[in-house]
């Protein structure tokens, strides 16, 4: 389950996990809630943008490019996506 207070469904959370492990070429157990994409998983900014792009496409949500700076680990991704989903629902 998501470790941060979030509005994500279990299904959405599993999708996020799957996207991150796929893009960063990780075994599922390598990715923790707080493991750093850059320091622990050799990500670079291109891969970070790919994660953002995949989330936008698979979850049908728009994420501002500026939020990339927060997406440094899985919890960060959850927070950004939760916020974007909420903003979309409020509109």
């Amino acid at each position: 389950m998501p470790s941060t207070a979030s509005t994500l469904t279990t299904e959405q959370d599993e999708t996020l996990r799957a996207i991150v492990t796929d893009v960063l070429e990780l075994e599922p157990e390598e990715l923790t809630d707080t493991s750093s994409f850059i320091d622990d998983h050799d990500a670079d900014s291109l891969l970070a943008i790919e994660i953002l792009a995949r989330i936008e496409k698979d979850l049908g949500v728009a994420i501002p490019q500026d939020d990339l700076t927060e997406m440094t680990n899985l919890d960060g991704v959850r927070a950004v996506v939760s916020r974007s989903l909420k903003e979309a629902a409020d509109v």
Partner: peptide
Amino acid sequence: RQERPYLVNPSLFP
């Protein structure tokens, strides 16, 4: 083909 033209995979751009 995508719903919006920019929904491309950035990692394939190079």
